[in-house]
């Protein structure tokens, strides 16, 4: 189906602890893809920084995580992803959001479709890579209002990483694309909302049985891996994922940066231990990571170590649970350091 010269890396539906707790990797993993079904070629509309006129889709849901800034810099295209929060859905939840199209799209009928996320298609739809976006034109139709916007709600899907596309079938144009993360369950995180510098922050993460997915029995032989990261909100906001290139996947560069420090993510998306280690070393010292792997128990108590010198203020605690089959859940909460 695909040109042999074109390298496409697929990603089976799943996330992982480190990607989950290191939010920048989520976006990276969202860019990775699984193959898509037979489809038609679409062109991609250009995005702009303006969140209301830039052809962006803002998803919303009951549980959201903060993501780092995502910046695209090409000679002919540049934008900064305008949304800071990104929802995490579970299969039983509808995918809801609003497409903010340019006013020139007023009263247009669009189709909104959710597909497995494919790297080439997604990067093309996001203007990172030039070329046609091949997607299945199926989807629910919605009428844009006089501002070129529309709010939507479409049924959820099975756990994994998906992409939501807003397409104009008349002009064969993908107007917008956004990754969608669907976790298996909604995990529970218990942590004190307030801690002092130097305190141990105990974080209890549990995987509840739910009506949709049922109970997890020991006979299921499911190993859970728990992870959590604590990072100051101020530092978190300084992390960004910058994408540069000349429009080809081969020449695309991805940098995870904080201040003057950056870690390059290879364009073939083959992540390495060294790269992650570099990223960990890039994090500010006022950060903490805790993890526990290979547990049968649906609960883990992690302990984040803080130090007396840590600055007061808001910290972001991101917790994730994964199993060998994929992401179980991801949750974020704010902790006040006083």
């Amino acid at each position: 189906m695909w040109p042999s010269a074109e390298k496409i890396y697929t990603l089976r539906i799943s996330l992982n602890i480190m990607r989950s707790i290191f939010q920048p990797f989520i976006l990276l993993s969202l860019i990775l893809s699984a193959g898509s079904a037979a489809a038609s070629d679409y062109s991609a509309s250009l995005h702009a920084d303006d969140p209301f006129e830039g052809n962006w889709t803002e998803l919303c849901g009951p549980s959201s995580t903060m993501i780092p800034a995502i910046i695209l810099t090409r000679s002919d295209v540049s934008w900064t992803y305008p949304h800071e929060l990104h929802p995490i859905y579970t299969p039983d939840q509808n995918i809801t959001g609003t497409f903010f199209g340019s006013s020139g799209l007023a009263n247009l009928t669009v189709h909104i479709t959710v597909a497995d996320l494919n790297i080439s298609n997604f990067l093309r739809a996001m203007n990172m890579v030039a070329g046609p976006v091949r997607i299945n034109p199926d989807g629910e139709s919605f009428d844009l209002n006089s501002l070129g916007d529309v709010s939507f709600s479409i049924p959820g899907t099975s756990p994994g990483i998906r992409a939501l596309y807003v397409v104009d079938n008349n002009s064969s144009t993908v107007l917008s694309a956004v990754p969608v993360l669907i976790a298996e369950r909604e995990i529970m995180v218990e942590a004190p909302p307030v801690v002092g510098p130097g305190d141990l922050l105990f974080v209890k993460i549990s995987v509840p049985n739910d009506s949709t997915n049922g109970s997890i029995n020991e006979s299921d032989d499911v190993h859970f891996h728990y992870g959590a990261i604590l990072i100051a909100l101020e530092d978190y906001r300084k992390i960004n994922l910058t994408m540069t290139g000349n429009g080809t996947l081969e020449d695309a560069s991805f940098f995870l940066s904080k201040g003057e420090n950056s870690v390059e993510i290879p364009s073939d998306f083959k992540l390495s231990s060294d790269m992650l280690m570099d990223f960990v070393m890039m994090l500010p010292p006022e950060s903490a990571v805790a993890f526990q792997m290979d547990l049968y128990e649906q609960e883990s108590e992690l302990c984040m170590i803080t130090e007396p010198g840590w600055a007061q203020g808001t910290y972001i605690l991101t917790c994730a649970v994964v199993s060998d089959s994929g992401i179980i859940g991801l949750k974020q909460m704010e902790i006040e350091m006083i």
Binding site: N16, L271, S273, G326
Partner: peptide, 21 residues
């Protein structure tokens, strides 16, 4: 045996199953 990060990442990448197509 691989190091802690190597071990974790191997596990993670195993979960992710990055495959070139």
């Amino acid at each position: 045996e691989k190091g802690i990060f190597g071990k974790i990442l191997d596990r993670i990448f195993g979960i992710l199953e990055l495959v070139a197509t």
